[in-house]
Structures are given as C-alpha cells and as structure tokens.
C-alpha cells in the first residue's frame, strides 16, 4: 500500500513542476500571476476538503469555519495581541482541529444522515459568520487590515507576488500529497468503507468514530493553515470573503467537478475552473452584467451532465483510449 506513495514522491512530474515554477512566474503579468496563486489556493482547499467530502463522502459545509478561523483569528491575534503570525497559524489550526473533532463527534453521536450532516455543518458555518460579524476582536463586519508585506519570513511575510506563489504552491502540493498518502494508507480504505456503507463498515469492525474524527481533524487543520496563508496574500481579512458560504460552495464545486474522492480530482477541478472563472470575468465582466456567470454556469452544468463522477475520470478514460496498452489494470 505504501509503495504507491513513494512512487508518487519520486515521479519525474515534480521536476517539470519545479522548472515551471522557477521559470514561469517572473514572466507572467501580475494579473495572471494572481490567477495562478488563486488557483493554487483553491487546489489546496479543495484537496483538503476532499479528505472529508470525497473520501468519507461527508459533504461538510463547515469548512468555511476552519478557513475563516485560520484567516481571521491569526490576523486578530497579530493585530490585537501582537502574536507572531506563525504562532497564530498554529493556534488557529489547533482550534480548527478541535472544532472539527466536535462536529465529527456530533455526527457520530446523533447518527446524522447525509442530509442532516450537510444542514448541521451549514448551521456551524453560519454561526461562524455571525460570531465574526458580531465580535470586534475578529474585526466585526468591517474586517481587518494586515500590515504591509515586507517579505520578513519570520513575521509570516513572503513579499507578495512570487513569494505568495511559492507558499501556495507548497501548500497545494502538501495538500495533494496528504491525499495520496491517506488514500494508500489503511485510513483511506476505512474512510471509503464509511462512505460506501456505514453499516457494512461497522460489520467488519471499523472504528467509525475514530476515523471520522481523524479525517475531519486533518482536513480542518489543513484548511485553517491554508486560510492563514491566503489572508496574508490578500492582506485584507474580509469576513464576507473568508468566512462566507461562497468560499465553501466554490470548494465543493471544484472538488465535485474535478472528481470526488480521488487524490488529484479536486486539484484538477480547481486548476480548470478558477482560471476559467477569472478569465471569463476579465473578458466579459465589462460587457453585459452577469454574462460571465451565465457562461460559467453553463460550463459547470455541461461538465456535470457529461461526467457525473468528475472530469478527471473522464480524462483518464480518453487518455487510456489513446494508449490502450498502458491501461490494462487498475
């Protein structure tokens, strides 16, 4: 089971990514660099969400709470209490992990079905929005402004632009690698048994509570760390962006379009849809209001109709048709 993970680590694809990462960003106009960074943020977030939403099949909308904690709390700790943002990142991640464990426990204790789980996590997310808006410490409704990014690494500053690109690239890769590692470890198999059939999982002796909590805690902490890095890039901690239902719905959408439960599926979805959304907005945003949303929506619907299990499985099928020999066994 572990071999697969090491094979991934030693894949020559990393070399290609490294070369691209060194060569490309300095050549890109800042607007396109911004799109790349944004895509990487969502690659990381969608992959982190995939551990709970894809592998365990639990459609959690509470992740905006973890992203928001990572962003707002670490910012507030820095601005209000002078806590170094690295430490703020760790504190936020721990708090997100505890909240995640609580939600997983509630799910287990009250045997929530799929729909109730979605609704309960949505309620938690909504609660987060209300708390942030109503609590001045976290910036209230007006948000918080971080000090200018001077590239001081020890203060969690990366110099904007290319620095942020590297941070997000590392987070995206770490997030994907955690997916690969879990999928090839017993945990990944147990999560899939829980997704496929919780009763059957119980019948073979899977400790459901333990693995639900494990998945949620890993996913929540990862989302929180990405949230902290994201707010440092944005410089402005905007509650309507970072603790909003919109961010989590985007994450769920990208993961679903890419391919739920697969190591590279959610990343694939984010890499396609974020640039598509941004470029449509850039090219068409000024013409007819709402037109870019319309086209974006049509594309998403077409993808879901064409391949309900996501784009990645579809591409794999095309690819194996082109090279029939390579795809004999799975």
């Amino acid at each position: 089971m572990r071999q697969e993970f090491y094979k991934t680590l030693t894949s020559p694809v990393w070399l290609v990514i490294l070369v691209l990462a060194v060569v490309l960003p300095p050549l890109l106009p800042s607007y396109y660099l911004h799109i790349v960074i944004l895509a990487l943020v969502y690659v990381a977030l969608a992959s982190a969400w995939n551990i709970v939403g894809g592998m365990a099949g639990q459609i959690s909308l509470a992740h905006s709470l973890f992203i928001g904690t990572g962003a707002m709390l670490s910012t507030a700790l820095l601005l209000k209490l002078g806590v170094n943002m690295w430490l703020g990142l760790v504190i936020s991640a721990i708090i997100s992990g505890v909240m995640g464990a609580m939600i997983a426990w509630i799910d287990f204790r009250f045997q929530l079905g799929h729909l109730s789980f979605v609704l309960i996590t949505m309620a938690f997310a909504e609660m987060g929005t209300v708390i942030v808006e109503g609590w001045d410490f976290l910036g209230g409704a007006s948000g918080l402004l971080l000090p200018q990014d001077k590239g001081d690494f020890l203060a969690f500053q990366f110099g904007g632009g290319i620095g942020a690109f590297w941070v997000m690239l590392v987070l995206a890769i770490v997030s994907i690698l955690i997916n690969v590692a879990i999928l090839n470890a017993p945990l990944g198999y147990y999560l899939r048994t829980i997704r496929d059939n919780e009763n059957a999982a119980r019948a073979i002796g899977v400790n459901i509570l333990r693995y639900k909590i494990a998945a949620m805690v890993i996913s929540a902490m990862l989302s929180s760390v990405i949230g902290t890095a994201y707010v440092r890039y944005l410089t402005f901690a905007d509650p309507y962006l970072l603790v909003s239902p919109i961010i989590i719905i985007e994450v769920v959408l990208f993961a679903t379009v890419g391919g739920l439960g697969r190591a590279y599926g959610p990343a694939f979805g984010a890499l396609l849809l974020v640039p598509l959304g941004e470029i449509l907005r850039g090219k068409l945003g000024g013409t007819l209001p709402g037109l870019h949303y319309f086209i974006y929506g049509v594309v998403v619907i077409a993808v879901i109709l064409m391949s309900p299990r996501g784009l990645l499985p579809l591409f794999e099928k095309w690819f194996s048709r082109m090279r029939p020999k390579a795809a004999t066994s799975k």
Partner: peptide, 28 residues
Amino acid sequence: MTPKQRVEIGIIQVPEGRLVFPDMSVRE
C-alpha cells in the same frame, strides 16, 4: 462491548442486502 470489540472476539455479521463496498475491488 462496541461493534468493533465484538468483531475482535469473533462475532461477525453478514448484513442484510449484502452491503459490499461497490467502488472497491473484490480483493480490497
């Protein structure tokens, strides 16, 4: 005892309606 502990001492159930894990191979 929890379901897991009972599996560990050898009380095993074949649930009604078969309930295999459809997206995994027979071997898995």
